[in-house]
Write a protein that binds this DNA or RNA. Structure first.
Lengths: 358, 358
DNA sequence: GTGCAAAATCTATGCGCTTCAATCGCCGGG
DNA sequence: CCCGGCGATTGAAGCGCATAGATTTTGCAC
């Protein structure tokens, strides 16, 4: 690559000053047509590309929004990739099978950024991320979007002193950052009401480990609906994602042998619901014939499943869009108070609750 | 946001010069532990974040790779989004149903960038992209990856004079840019051989509009295999994506009424294959019972379809990874010649060719 | 042709950081 | 006690662009 031409080169070739060159690009109508053409010709001839670094420095804004995503490789292989790590076998199709939760959110962020004339910087958060890596992104954007629990809170707080930071899909809280969440409680409440009202079920168990804020809220939605109907609460635990299948199988086996199988399993995520449906099938129990199962998230995997999973659909793309939107608004007019927004969810009545023939 | 602290502020607070602050971040081992701590404390106290713009300017590199993606909103709504365009109904699930071709490629680019310590800038190419928009991205990255036919060639050429540019999934050619492609010809050749050798078919029609370089290569793979077996070539046209379903239906109806239905339809893309399978089903023709259908791409949609689509799987993630890899290599050591790489494809024998019970 | 306001262009400076060359401080040897 | 030598630190010069303010040019009325 030859040395990149600069404004100076263009100015010299066009016979004007660098200020004029700069103007030609930023305020084309402010410069006389003849000189504009001269500048543009010179730029074209030289293959000139304005340096975004220099521009960002001079203007104090970068025109970019940052998003901390995940290290897919590490996430799927369990290994943090480095330069020597060979790549996995693509024949393992599992991890690319369906769009993941974050993919959809990221898509939303992209869409909104582009719509508003920003570009998106995507960085990862590997376990080895140093503060320097993080600064590497935070330092080059005008706003930052992060998924919860990917970055230490203190770092987030520090960054948020300089540029707006929005947490995606974080329950409403008071950590001082901007945030977008969905109506976890209302969603599971109306799902539970559906199970009670439409299907007349009374023995409904909530499945999900508590401790995660999202799930707590979903639980309280379940709880609210059950109490309103005068029904007793009941919960079933789940294991960490990795052991989900085995755990579900054991749990189902246990309930079967003890004769304590509930009429419905209201799971706190689609992933859990799918695991329990597999376990139930393995135990020869029909869904929704003998037991209803519902999820939460609205993943495509649940839609493709047979019976199709009744669930609560989160507006994932919208979540990303809203996050980006808050950021861009804040860049323009920084507000005093953190912006918190909650998005509605949508009940997706499909087959696994017993609504249509499976 | 308070004024962002700079090296000067940190230097002042730590009682050192800005050069030392800079050193502390770039060559920590070169500075005495005591001063390093002083600097780090000051930086922490101030909430200092180095400005990537300034750093990029001073260093002449940005540490970012750019990718021109698509304007999803425009692609799915047919409308170019602007600040006033409201957002579509997410209930239209079609467009988020399966990971699209580009999503997987983008994922690959992300993975490789992160693995090598780069961040990714994703920009869109809306129909209204001005040269300035493009420069907006090209000017802030060290290398650029693009999908074919998204940017005018002359602009690409200009950009490639300054930074390495790689075309993803472009057939091998001589346009002077780096490129990654897949073995289109070999893929369709072995698929055709499978149809001939394993299933004993002789009347195999190639489906696909020629004119697109990729498809030309696929056609020649088909053609090669047919000729090698002494069979006659036969082609069926397809319409532009938008009218695919209707066109396929008409075509099938035509062939049925004329009694010219072939034994197999070797489609040039999964999308076409799926459309033809729908059309055949609508006409009451069984696949693979009465006719075999195959695709090319390896989309998830084909996997979920019943019968599952026999196809040629492109290594999409790997495509992105390879592209990014070429770029990053070129940033380090610019080469004279454009790098062209071709990736192998993989035959995915499933049901639609007749291999397993449908 | 002159005068003047508006438009066009230029001069000069700063944005925050990196880096090279130069300086400083400290140690041990002579 | 002085000097050389070496590592730690600093001074200063940019990197490429934007922009306020100064200056020149242009267009126009008189």
């Amino acid at each position: 690559m030859a040395k990149r031409p600069t404004v100076y080169d263009v100015a010299a070739r066009a016979g004007v000053s660098i200020a004029t060159v700069s103007f030609t690009f930023s305020q084309p109508h402010k410069v006389r047509p003849s000189t504009r053409e001269a500048v543009e010709d010179a730029a074209r001839a030289l293959g000139y590309l304005p340096s975004a670094s220099a521009r960002g420095l001079a203007r104090g804004k970068t025109g970019a929004i940052g998003l901390f995503s995940f290290d897919y490789y590490a996430r799927n292989s369990g290994v943090t990739a480095d330069a020597d790590t060979p790549f996995g076998d693509e024949a393992n199709e599992d991890f690319r099978m369906f769009p993941l939760y974050h993919d959809e959110v990221q898509r939303g962020v992209e869409m909104e950024c582009w719509r508003r004339g920003y570009v998106l910087m995507v960085g990862d958060t590997k376990s080895t991320s140093s503060e320097a890596d993080i600064a590497g992104i935070a330092g080059r954007v005008d706003g930052l979007a992060v998924f919860p629990n990917t970055l230490p809170d203190d770092i987030l707080l520090r960054i948020s002193k300089r540029i707006p930071v929005v947490e995606l899909s974080i329950p409403i809280n008071n950590n001082g950052l901007h945030g977008v969440s969905v109506d976890n409680e209302g969603g599971l409440a109306s799902l539970t009401e559906h199970l009670i009202g439409v299907h007349g079920l009374t023995d409904i168990a909530f499945v999900g480990p508590l401790g995660f804020p999202d799930k707590e809220h979903r639980f309280s939605g379940y709880s609210r609906a059950m109490k309103a109907a005068g029904l007793a609460l009941r919960t079933v635990d789940t294991a960490p994602p990795g052991q989900l299948a085995a755990f579900a199988r054991d749990t189902v086996a246990g309930m079967v042998s003890e004769g304590t199988l509930p009429q419905a399993l209201a799971c706190s995520t689609d992933e859990e619901a799918l695991a329990y449906m597999d376990a139930l099938a393995a135990a020869g129990i029909s869904v929704p014939g003998q037991i209803a199962v519902t999820g939460f998230d609205g993943l495509v995997a649940g839609l493709v499943n047979r019976p199709a999973l009744t669930t609560v659909r989160q507006p994932l793309v919208e979540l990303g869009r809203t996050g980006a939107s808050i950021l861009i608004d804040q860049v323009a007019v920084p507000g005093k108070e953190p912006v918190k927004r909650q998005l509605p969810v949508k009940l997706m009545i499909r087959e696994s609750c017993g609504c249509r023939a499976a």
